[in-house]
């Protein structure tokens, strides 16, 4: 059963790793973490504002987590996605995957990120450092391409 959280507050990576190691039992041999950060785009952006679809965001993250659990021998999963205003350097998303061996944990973490980016209902709006109206971040074709490799 994955730990899935959508929250406004910052997350604590070390605390999440410690929690997973403590709760996951003694057969976990590998915990892979991925952290997605807000970038400034070389000083252009003051912040990103993340909008989400409450209820669906959590449901979709749980569905993606179940798919990962079906595909790999996973002992524990954590997915935390933030919403609201996030400044450069702060975390936006955190994924943790635990398994007996590293291969499954690495692959599951990457799978989760590829699906989160294309299926979890979140949208980023830019806040510009120069005060001008920012635009909505556009979806990248490369994210759909990344998804393709998980389909047989």
């Amino acid at each position: 059963m994955a730990r899935v959280i959508v929250q406004r507050e910052a997350f604590d990576i070390a605390a999440e790793i410690a929690r997973m190691a403590a709760d996951g039992g003694t057969d976990i041999g590998a915990i892979v973490t991925f952290t997605g950060l807000c970038r400034s785009e070389k000083g252009v952006l003051a912040a990103l504002e993340l909008e989400h679809y409450p209820g669906m965001a959590e449901a979709e993250m749980e569905r993606i987590a179940r798919e990962a659990e079906d595909r790999w021998p996973i002992d524990a999963l954590t997915i935390i996605h933030r919403y609201g205003k996030i400044v450069p350097g702060e975390g936006i998303v955190l994924v943790l995957a635990a398994s007996a061996h590293r291969a499954a944990a690495f692959e599951a973490a990457e799978f989760l990120m590829d699906y989160l980016k294309t299926h979890a209902p979140f949208w980023k709006k830019e806040h510009r450092a120069d005060g001008q109206e920012g635009s909505w971040v556009e979806a990248h074709t490369r994210d759909d391409v990344a998804l393709g490799r998980w389909r047989d």
Binding site: G36, L50, H52, Y53, G55, M56, A57, A59, E60, H81, I92, V93, M113, L116, K117, T118, H119, A120, P121, F122, W123, K124, W136, V137, E138, A139
Partner: peptide
Amino acid sequence: DKQHVPHDAPIGNAKEIAFFPPMTGG
């Protein structure tokens, strides 16, 4: 009702239908 559907999906007894651009989370 908070599940992705294609444009040719039947509406049936839907309670809530959402429209949005391609997602940019993560």
